[in-house]
Every structure is written in C-alpha cells, then in structure tokens.
Design a protein around this nucleic acid. Structure first.
Lengths: 223, 223
DNA sequence: TAGATTGTTAATCGATTAACAATC
DNA sequence: TAGATTGTTAATCGATTAACAATC
C-alpha cells in the first residue's frame, strides 16, 4: 500500500479557496479564460506561485491562453471534494453553533450540516435554519444510521475534550474543532482546528509593531 | 526611521498562543520551571523549535534548568500585547457576532469587545453579555469618543466590503475580519482575516486523501 | 509570424532541524 | 563533579521565485 501523505503542500491547499473565489468572480464577469498573472494580481501573489499551485493539483493550462475558468473551477472543487457535499453533525448549539448551522456558504464548500446536538433540554427538538436539534444521547445512533463521518465541535471549552472523546467513541472520522482546546484523541481521527487564537496573535503583534513604530516616529524625529 | 517588518516570523507568532496554553496549564499543576523539551512533547513539536521561537521573542532560559514559567508567561503576554487589553467594537450582531461578544477568552487575550453595532432596529438598544448594541450610524462618533482602534467585522458577506470601508472612514486602525471577503481597503489599515475557508479546505483534502487510501486498500490487496 | 502564457529546471530564500560547546 | 538544558553556529529541508525554452 502506498502511504503518501499528500503530494500537495499545506500552503498550496490553503491558497486554493482564494483561487476559487477569484475564478467564480471572473466567470460571473463573463470571462472564459484566465491567466496565472491575472489571478496573482487579484490576490497579491506571484504568477509563478499560482501556476505552481495549480499544477500541483494536477491541472494544466494552455500556453498563450491561460486556464479555462469553468474547467479550473470544476477541477479545484473536485480536488477539494467540494463538488459532492458531505453530511456532517454539529455538536454544541450555542451562538457559534447556531451561526455555523445558518451559514449558507458551507454547502457550496462541500459541507452540509444536517443536524445539531446539544444537552440543553430547551434546545432539543427545536429547529435552526431548518435543521433539527437532537439530544446528545442520540448522537451515536443517528451517526450510524445516517452514515455521517464529520462532526463540527462548537461546545464550551470545558466540555470539548469530553465531547470529542464521545464523538470518537460513536464512530466519527473527522472533527472540525472550533474550540481552542487541542484535542487528545486517536491519531487516525482527522482533526482540523480553526485557529482563532493564532489569528488574534497575529493581529495583536501587528498592532504592537505599529505602536512601536509610531513611538519611534516621535522619539527619532527632531522637531 | 527604521521600518522593520517584525523580526519575528509569522509561523513563530502563530505558535506562541499554544506555548502560553501549555505554560498556564503547567503553572496550575504547581511547576516552577519548564524545559523546551517538555513544551515540545506536549505540542508534538521539536524542542529546538520551541527554544528558537522563545529566543526570537527576546527571552532566555537558564542552562540546566529551563524557563521560569511565570516569567515566561508574562514575557509572551507582553510580547503579544495580551497583558493590557485593548478595547474593540464589533460590527454585525448576528449569531456569530453574539457568539464572539459572549466569549470570555478574548479579554484574557488582550481583546475587550466593549460594544456591538448593527442596522437591525430590533437589536439596537439591547444588551448582549452586558454589552450594548448601538445603531451603526453612531459608530464614527463613539469610535472617536472612546478612542477605539480595533473593529471586529461579523456582518453578512454581501455587506462586508461596504461596512469595512465605513469603518475605515470612521478612523478604525485594525479590522479582525470574520467574513470570507478579502477586503479592499488602504494598506495602512491592519486587516487580519480568520481563514475559515482555508481550514475547511485542509479538512476536505485530508478527508479526500483518507478516502483514496481506503479505496487503494480494497483495490490493492488480494483477498 | 508575433505576442502571450505556460510548465520545467535551476536558484534563492527562509524556516526547521542537527550538533555541540557553554552554563547552571 | 555529573546531569540537564540552554543558545549558537552550521546543515538540511521545503517553499518560493527566477529564467527561459516550449507551445498555442
């Protein structure tokens, strides 16, 4: 068995959604083909990087012409698995959970949240954006019956580890983790964490830099 | 004027919050010092990387002993500006906005959301997690009066660019962008986008790989 | 044919990792 | 002193960028 850990690098994969964004926009504007230079300009990247990324996903353009937009969209969506959407359960119907259940954009990106789960009796039985909320107890049973593989984790921090373990026990294969907890679960389970903290760290440090710069302005400049 | 674009690399900055996490945990457990090897083990990193990262922020440990935990926490929080929390406004009090306004963790990370803004008359005047919601019209005035520098953007996708422009006009200095829109605003404004789509792309492609692997299992193995 | 744009091969750059002397 | 751990210097690795022949 060949055990390749993806031939496509993480930085490349992370840029693909932004390419799709530009491509869809461009298609709507009535264009048929697009060049790597055009995509690069729109995203403040280098054309060669765009070409390298695209070729890594296994598509090739046409010399002198560029890439067929519709074909490229189809190809990238296929590559990401965003064409045939996968069903998912969401656990933790707080404000964040409700926000995610109502977000239309996920379905276009291959993720279809079909139901929510919570422990709060006031929430159980209700519907959010047309999706029913079940008792967490029903999770294992429904997971099996609906052949769900993906769980979205939006519970409070202090419940995260415990609930994640329960999801794994129930047979989940992948967890999209919206908590800041680094889950301790078996290696074979796919876990992707949304790194809010990292994003805030970058924002914070850029703000700090800016402050230091303007402080330098005052100290360094002779009036 | 020296215009250094930060001596500390982005990958390093993004790892700092996880270091803080381990450090706080370790302090609670009653430890006084910690080694780079310990931190690395807890985060599945290499000890040398932890040391390199920490030294990049300008702190040094003690040979044979490690780092003083309390001192290191203080240092990293200072570095990120997470000690003295900065006030921020949040624009767009939908489910996501409400979720963020109620999240306790931000204050510990230097971000204090003090008020929300919305265009929905039903929301204006109400309070969420003890924070008042104002009409978006009041944004520029309150921004100036309270000396707010940071705006959290949680409006619907189709309003994002327009609202962001309004925030810039009003004098905002930094935007934490929770929409998937790449904002087109002046260079000198700090924009940090939470890359939900990228995270989903990584999850998707890992799922696809896993599928392909198990498909190979079946095709490759002779029964 | 001339112009545009691709994909390949090589060069550069920056981040990670290794080795190890210095220090507590 | 022996053991643990740091920080420095050098080596490696992988991603980005450059150069350019090939192609439409």
């Amino acid at each position: 068995m060949i055990m390749k850990v993806s031939s496509v690098s993480l930085p490349t994969i992370k840029r693909l959604p932004s390419y799709l964004h530009i491509l869809r926009q461009s298609l709507e504007e009535g264009h048929e083909n697009i060049s790597s230079a055009y995509i690069a300009r729109a995203l403040h990247l280098e054309a060669i990087q765009v070409r390298k990324d695209l070729s890594a996903t296994g598509i090739s353009g046409q010399s002198g012409v560029g890439f067929n937009i519709a074909g490229l969209i189809k190809h990238l969506e296929d590559f990401l698995g965003w064409n045939n959407s996968r069903d998912a359960f969401l656990v933790g119907c707080g404000n964040l959970g409700v926000a995610l259940m109502g977000y239309e954009g996920f379905r276009e990106r291959g993720l279809n949240i079909v139901a929510g789960f919570d422990v709060d009796k006031n929430k159980i039985g209700k519907e959010i954006s047309g999706k029913k909320i079940f008792s967490l107890e029903k999770f294992p049973d429904l997971l099996e019956r609906l052949h769900i593989k993906i769980g979205v984790l939006t519970v409070p921090q202090n419940r995260a580890q415990q609930v994640a373990a329960y999801m794994v026990e129930s047979g989940i294969e992948a967890i999209w983790n919206f908590t800041s907890i680094r889950l301790d679960i078996p290696e074979h389970i796919i876990v992707e964490r949304v790194e809010l903290e990292c994003s805030l760290a970058v924002l914070s440090s850029r703000l700090r830099e800016k402050n230091e710069e303007s402080a330098e302005d005052f100290s360094g400049v002779k009036v």
